[in-house]
């Protein structure tokens, strides 16, 4: 009898635990949805007054007068992101090909932890470095060759900082993709008399193209959302940049700089929430697509 009670108790305990865990799992699944809905609801007040399109395409930002044009911030984000990808991608491709196809194991043993460390450095430290090194370098060394004056606080500075920040992410994904490509495929190309480089160029890169694209999309979405580091070096002037030496004002910086401060202005917090919602929606989509592509690749090559 005691035994039966005991086992009944055990089974109940098992059931309770199972349901609790299921609930938490569902919560973690729903979290993205909750965030999206929450941000959207908060941004409805402004969407009732202005059309989404007029908000996105408007280039005047005067919250006091009720003018909320997001275009300068969107352009700021695009410039910074574009520059960072242009810098990071070639570096990452070359480095990850080198590390996965050529480098001696000892080299890998040294380089991998260093890239991990690079990934772990907090954004704010990148920002400090940007102010200490990158900004003065741009205003003193690079900009004078091209424009009359630049403070150095520019989309270029933001792009450089962001590039270094997304490099570890791209490299780690690329290396995983290259590692997932079966050795037989390389052997097949080599046995036809191709050089290592030809094999990389015609077979490896071709086979990993979907993965590379997915990695870029992930990197773009990471760059989109990066806040503090970019905020610290971009200059934050709400006007669309026209050259890489102009200041810019990316969306996340807008939110971070103003939120919680000027809530007395009508629609201001709603406008900022809309900015957060736009960021969320774009990044959610980008992540969804690239993660699905990457999981497919992983499954396809897993034996």
């Amino acid at each position: 009898m005691a035994l039966r009670n005991n086992s009944a108790f055990r089974i109940i305990k098992d059931k309770v635990a199972r349901n609790l865990m299921l609930a938490l799992t569902l919560f973690s699944l729903a979290l993205a949805l909750i965030i999206g809905v929450g941000l959207y609801m908060k941004s409805t007040p402004i969407l009732e007054q202005h059309s989404l399109w007029s908000l996105l395409s408007g280039d005047v930002w005067r919250p006091f007068k009720g003018q909320f044009g997001f275009l300068p911030f969107i352009m700021g984000t695009l410039w910074v992101t574009g520059i960072s990808i242009l810098i990071a991608l070639p570096l990452c491709l070359l480095t990850s090909i080198y590390l996965s196809e050529y480098a001696h194991p000892y080299v890998k043993k040294v380089v991998f932890p260093m890239i991990d460390i690079l990934a772990g450095i907090p954004p704010v430290v990148y920002g400090v470095w940007g102010i200490l090194v990158v900004v003065p370098f741009i205003s003193d060394k690079i900009a004078p060759h091209f424009v009359e004056y630049s403070s150095g606080y520019s989309v270029l500075a933001g792009g450089i900082i962001l590039a270094i920040m997304i490099i570890p992410l791209i490299i780690s994904i690329l290396i995983e993709i290259f590692a997932s490509i079966p050795k037989e495929l390389r052997d097949a190309s080599l046995s036809l008399g191709a050089t290592n480089w030809q094999t990389i160029k015609f077979v490896l890169l071709r086979k990993s193209l979907p993965g590379i694209v997915a990695a870029i999309v992930l990197a773009i979405s990471r760059a989109f959302g990066e806040t503090i580091a970019v905020l610290m070096v971009c200059g934050n002037i709400p006007a669309s940049p026209h050259s890489i030496f102009d200041s810019g004002y990316p969306l996340p910086a807008l939110i971070a700089n103003n939120y919680g401060e000027m809530l007395s202005i009508p629609l201001y917090d709603s406008a900022l929430m809309l900015a957060a919602f736009i960021l969320f929606a774009i990044i959610f989509l980008f992540n969804l697509i690239s993660r699905i592509v990457l999981t497919r690749i992983e499954k396809k090559f897993a034996l």
Binding site: I35, R222, G225, I255, A256, I283, N287, L288
Partner: peptide, 14 residues
């Protein structure tokens, strides 16, 4: 994976 990609500013705002 997707939540991992959501930027911290969005978590902050939320």
């Amino acid at each position: 994976d997707i939540l991992f990609g959501i930027p911290s500013i969005v978590y902050g705002a939320f």
